[in-house]
Amino acid sequence: MTILPDGPVLRTGRFVLLAACLALPAPAEAQVRGVEVRTPRPFGYFLGDLVQAQVDLVVEPGFRVQAASLPQPGALTYWLDLRTVSVSQSDMGDARRVRLALTYQNFYAALDARTLEIPGFTVTFVSESEHGATTAKAEVPPWSFNVSPLREVQPPARDDPRDYMRPDGQVGPGDPRAFLMGAAGSAALALLGFAGLARDRTWWPFRARRGRPFAIAARRLRALAREPEAATGQRDALLALHHAIDAAAGRRLLADDLPGFLDAHPAYRGEAAGLARFFEASRRTFFGPGAGHDAFSLGDLASLGQRLARAERAA
């Protein structure tokens, strides 16, 4: 078992521990062609540092890693945790390379610079064929790294114990624009949502406004009054006002219902006489012997519509 520096890795500042299995007589061992452990550096670690290690295993083609044989993330010893393990496999010529990326974390609170050993482990490879499964084991050797203390063991005495502490780091002024934009966007969304809710619940300003049927009728009556020669003008005008009254009452209003309508809608009480005359005229026009001497002229109807529309606005 030798530990050799590897050319290209040295250029990148890595130190390579090459563990070649030289025990050739065992045929199972022969199926593992090489084991390499690479680390960025074997020294200069402090309490809490992450130690990266890359293990390259070269095996005969057809072998694959048995996942259960890989080290499990977790505490390995009281001072060492294995944080992550990831496996990647690739074909390399006529061999197969399995690369393990291991991340350890060191929790050793060292009082002086010293060497610690990360334990080795065994990885099992399996090759399945028609005649059965062949397994091969690769021993990953233990390897060492140096840890150093973070501070002096016996610092010079100081009057103020706070002087032992390092000052707090300065936090630079952050850029609040992104947060402001986010806040403004959220506020706009909230407002939009609230507007939708208000519309759904008919809160102000979406409170359902009562329609203004008399205003519509008044417009129609004015239009009809402008062309008095139309044959059906009178009937259309009466109908327009009827529709407005029906809409205001919420039901079909007959002449006899007028007192009840005025009680329910006192705003129109001022027009009681005009409305009574309108109903009488409508009755005669539609059901009776025709408009009599007290026929409503289109102009009268239009002005009644105007007055009703005004009462409607005041209501």
């Binding site: 009466l238 109908l239 009827h242 039901r251 079909r252 007959l254 059901f287």
Partner: peptide, 8 residues
């Protein structure tokens, strides 16, 4: 019925 059917 009377509240629905228009007259006239």
């Amino acid at each position: 019925v009377f509240e629905t059917v228009p007259a006239p």
